[in-house]
């Protein structure tokens, strides 16, 4: 089991941001973590990454207890968001080295891995170019490669494809599939409902709770919906919290 959460809860004062959620994600699974704005996704994700201490409940990520050992978690996971991914004023190669170092890789392991990843991405000749001058599509692919450079057990992707063109979005998902087939567990949030269909399983959070969880086909069948967009709309339109 790559992620296991049990009655995970987070309160801020008298506001319950995450209300008693329980779920498990298998190794190598692509798990879509969906929900309306304000439903509590970010808070839940921060607890799973060891960045925020749960008020109650427990969670184990990559075999490590998020409450007992939050520091250790950070070495076993990768993280990428739309907003923060790479440093524009460092080169492709420097970004890789920097993040690999932050994730605790040893220097001698970094060099060999860097060559392999650059070659696989077709970016070897561009290794000394500043990331800021790469086309956006390339940046996105590079950012994902950097987030799994240290071969984490789980990678957390927070709206990784927002604003990305449709071709690049699909190339990005191809990278996700390849990572998953290598055994990396992918925990991803998105507002694109076609991407929800690409996940092995999804959960949909409404008002701090998990309102539904299952494979996309199970969810569609159980609600009699044609698409994941319809599923989302049926579950989230009555949310009490205003996003």
């Amino acid at each position: 089991m790559a992620i296991h959460a049990e009655s995970l809860t987070k309160q801020f004062g008298n506001f319950t941001a995450v209300d008693n959620i329980s779920f498990s994600v298998e190794k190598g699974e692509i798990f879509g973590f969906l929900g309306a704005n304000g439903a509590g996704k970010t808070t839940a994700m921060r607890m799973l990454c060891g960045l925020s201490r749960p008020t109650s409940g427990k969670a184990v990520v990559a075999g490590i207890d998020v409450v007992k050992d939050p520091e250790k978690i950070k070495r076993r996971i990768g993280y990428m968001s739309q907003r923060f991914s790479l440093y524009d004023d460092l080169t492709v190669s420097e970004n890789m080295t920097l993040f690999a170092g932050i994730y605790g890789m040893r220097e001698k392991d970094i060099a060999a891995k860097r060559t392999a990843v650059l070659t696989r991405l077709g970016l070897y000749d561009e290794r000394d170019i500043l990331v800021g001058s790469l086309p956006l599509g390339w940046k996105q692919k590079l950012a994902f490669s950097v987030s799994i450079f240290h071969e984490p057990a789980v990678v957390f992707l927070d709206e990784p494809t927002g604003g990305v063109d449709p071709v690049t979005r699909r190339q990005f998902w191809r990278q996700i599939y390849e990572a998953s087939e290598r055994g990396i567990t992918v925990f991803v949030t998105t507002h694109y409902m076609d991407e929800a269909e690409y996940c092995h399983r999804v959960s949909i959070m409404v008002d701090g709770r998990i309102a539904a969880m299952g494979t996309p086909s199970e969810l569609k069948a159980s609600l009699g919906a044609g698409t994941m967009d319809d599923v989302f709309y049926m579950l989230a339109r009555n949310a009490e919290r205003i996003g």
Binding site: A36, N37, A39, E159, G162, H191, F232, A236, G243
Partner: peptide, 10 residues
């Protein structure tokens, strides 16, 4: 609507 969930987008 960038970064806005599907319900709010509708």
């Amino acid at each position: 609507t960038t970064g806005v969930d599907p319900v709010s987008r509708k």
